[in-house]
Amino acid sequence: MTFAKHIRLLPSLVAGALLIAVPAWGDGDHLYPETTLFMAAHLDRKPPRLDADYDIAVATVFRDVFADDTVLYADVDNPLGGIRFVGLKKNKEDAWRLFSLREKIRLLRYAEIAEAERDGDVQRARDYSAEVPPKPEDVPVERCERPLDTVMAQRIATLWDTMLRGTRNSTREEVLAENKKIMANGGLVTVLVDGTAYHFYTGGMEGQTYNPAKGTAPDLLSKIADAMSDACADSKSLPTLRARVTALEKHLAPESAK
């Protein structure tokens, strides 16, 4: 679910100084690099400890995802829907398995507890602590796993690799073009105050997209991640997964043919 706010910018702000805040991700036909502690925190001078604590809690609860037999995965994070992981594992016999994991308790609470403790807010820390097990390790996870045929798994793996190898920032020209488009629309921009973030991983590469434009490669890849999750829960969804894999292959085909 996405809530959006439409904000009309003053043309003077845009035309002269180009002051539109552009997020790390945009509507490009590629994934964007992850943001980390090494990036800026201009708006909030406090080190982004909350984000790091949340990520550490997620990495702890979903530690199975990081096992050696995992070939690729995605995490899908929505402030209302929570976080889930979907991916593929391959064992020593080259048998592929589709997996899907979902949090049962909002893990952000652990980061919020740590933040309340740092702030010295004992009551808030106590209230939040009452909502979750003492340690993230004890948080139950909703699990699903099923075999996946080798051909389909390898097609998905190829798509993950292709998409992640193309991870990059927007160029200055792309950002300027986006701003021009906004001005042509009367300065109306949509600022997402909620949305679904998709993060993709394989072979040590990472990339993300956030409410991608419909029909773009990140949009099609996100739909594959959703279909993988559905197909894990119910094999009747496998044809949908197959169709979405084909759709992205077709979308990328002209690029790979170069």
């Binding site: 992850e34 943001t35 997620v58 990495a59 990081f66 991983y201 040590g204 590469m205 990472e206």
Partner: peptide, 9 residues
């Protein structure tokens, strides 16, 4: 590109 915690790297 920079690495992330959830990226495992």
């Amino acid at each position: 590109p920079e690495n992330s915690i959830i990226g495992g790297s």
